[in-house]
């Protein structure tokens, strides 16, 4: 099924088009959301909302980019919004616990439910996730898409609507910032 056929099918609310859309893009969407959120359950829940948004707003898709790029854009935006919501919720929960109204609700720690990982691996991943979240938004998006989702510079540039040079510069600065942040946790790599 080509992109135009898929779009036409979605516009007509055809079951096969929905199935094709989900099967083709769900893994990429969930993994990208996971790389931003650091929690697979959150990413899976968010993926449902992302697909609903894709279907609802497919009529706004213009052929200025590929469908895949457009889907990635939606995924990145929704993931960043979710991250902001989580931060706000986390702040409120901390505030409640300070005041003394703390209930049973909590924001899951990134990688807390990955039982297959050892303690050190979990800590390393959390450290990297925290460091990435401290990067400026543009650097974070470029770095995650390129390093985690294996998107080429050109694709990252299309998703972010930036020039190739700008993306290269963002990724370079992101690496440098991450190096500065993470080197503190790995003293063995510190230059004397």
């Amino acid at each position: 099924m080509t992109d135009p056929e898929l779009i036409e099918g979605i516009l007509k609310c055809e079951r096969t088009a929905f199935q094709y859309l989900v099967i083709r893009y769900q893994r990429g969407v969930i993994k990208t959301a996971f790389h931003f959120l650091g929690n697979m359950e959150d990413a899976e829940d968010l993926s449902q909302e992302i697909f609903l948004e894709i279907i609802r707003s497919i009529h706004t898709f213009r052929n200025s980019s590929t469908l895949e790029t457009w889907i990635y854009r939606i995924t990145v935006n929704r993931s960043l919004n979710q991250l902001k919501k989580n931060k706000r919720r986390g702040f409120l929960i901390r505030l409640e616990s300070i005041i003394g109204f703390s209930g049973n609700h909590s924001i899951p720690e990134p990688y807390a439910n990955e039982t297959s990982l050892g303690q050190e691996e979990k800590e390393n991943k959390k450290m990297l996730h925290d460091a990435i979240n401290k990067l400026p938004e543009n650097q974070r998006i470029a770095f995650v898409l390129h390093k985690f989702d294996d998107q080429a510079y050109k694709q990252v540039a299309e998703i972010m609507n930036l020039s190739l040079a700008a993306v290269e510069s963002l990724i370079h600065r992101a690496k440098s910032n991450l190096h500065t942040q993470l080197i503190a946790h790995f003293p063995e790599y510190k230059k004397n």
Binding site: E44, S47, H129
Partner: peptide, 22 residues
């Protein structure tokens, strides 16, 4: 560390859940 992160795979039944929701 990045390779570890990339190795995580979503629930194989997630596609069914998404389709049900749709």
């Amino acid at each position: 560390i990045i390779a570890l992160e990339k190795a995580a795979e979503p629930n194989p039944f997630q596609a069914t859940k998404i389709l049900q929701r749709i």
